[in-house]
């Protein structure tokens, strides 16, 4: 018992003061892509190299769908003119699917819930997570939010064991055909009003598995989605930032 107390003192206080203090992400971290159309020479190399068809030509301009992007950075590597550059900006979440389509103008971040919903969920939001396919990396970086480094509980947010105890779903994975029914049943088991968060490229668009007949190209083909959190997987701070934006915390 005494040893546990000594260990507690040695380990110290390690909760990061997010969102008051911005996190320091690694130098090589790939965050929100920035597109400068004026530099584009229309070579279309980025379009042909993208493994998830996230880059779309619109006239002589390019657009990048962050909902499909897996942040591999191959487009940045092939572009000689630096038209696409991955910034270190970790705030990627959006409230509408179309807001994830990046053009050269300003990115529209997720807005907080409407007043009536915020009144219900603003100070206490219980989420039921559903793995609907995918690779378990989104799950791993969601799990860490409950550790003392991020301490999700201090914002009144908690992952709970049953959909009956939950205010919403947190979905990862492309929704495999084998999970579609289980996801629908879980959604139906959450009492209304409820919210749905889709985290990771898979849950938004099918990600690297998009087009496979064994999956259904993302959660919003099964249930209505209120918050999209891009990434493959999203960094824990990207997920946390998304949830807090929904709750109007720190903005």
């Amino acid at each position: 018992m005494l040893k546990a107390f000594v260990a507690r003192i040695k380990q110290g206080y390690r909760t990061y003061p997010f969102p008051k203090k911005k996190p320091s992400l690694p130098e090589r971290f790939k965050g929100r892509p920035v597109i400068s159309d004026s530099k584009c020479n229309d070579c279309k190399k980025c379009i042909s190299i993208c493994p998830t068809d996230a880059i779309i030509a619109n006239g002589n301009k390019i657009e990048l769908d962050m909902g499909r992007c897996i942040f591999c950075g191959k487009c940045e590597q092939v572009c000689q003119n630096k038209t696409i550059i991955f910034s270190r900006e970790y705030s990627l979440a959006a409230g509408k699917r179309e807001d994830l389509l990046l053009k050269s103008q300003e990115f529209k971040s997720a807005e907080s819930l409407k007043a009536d919903m915020l009144k219900i969920f603003g100070r206490s939001l219980k989420l039921r997570q559903v793995s609907a396919g995918g690779c378990n990396a989104c799950e791993a970086d969601t799990n860490v939010l409950s550790t003392l480094a991020y301490d999700l509980g201090r914002f009144g947010v908690q992952f709970v064991a049953s959909p009956r105890h939950a205010d919403g779903l947190f979905i990862t994975g492309p929704v495999t055909t084998n999970m579609k029914l289980a996801l629908k049943k879980t959604y139906d088991a959450v009492p209304s009003p409820k919210i749905v968060i889709a985290a990771g490229a898979c849950a938004i668009s099918g990600g690297i598995y998009s087009g496979h007949p064994e999956q259904t190209n993302g959660a919003d083909n099964s249930v209505p989605v209120d918050l999209y959190i891009p990434g493959c997987p999203p960094n824990p701070y990207t997920i946390l930032d998304g949830i807090l934006r929904l709750l109007g915390v720190g903005s």
Partner: peptide, 11 residues
């Protein structure tokens, strides 16, 4: 199991 099957080997 099989719920996470996403057809990688076939692809």
């Amino acid at each position: 199991l099989g719920y996470q099957h996403r057809g990688i080997e076939k692809a």
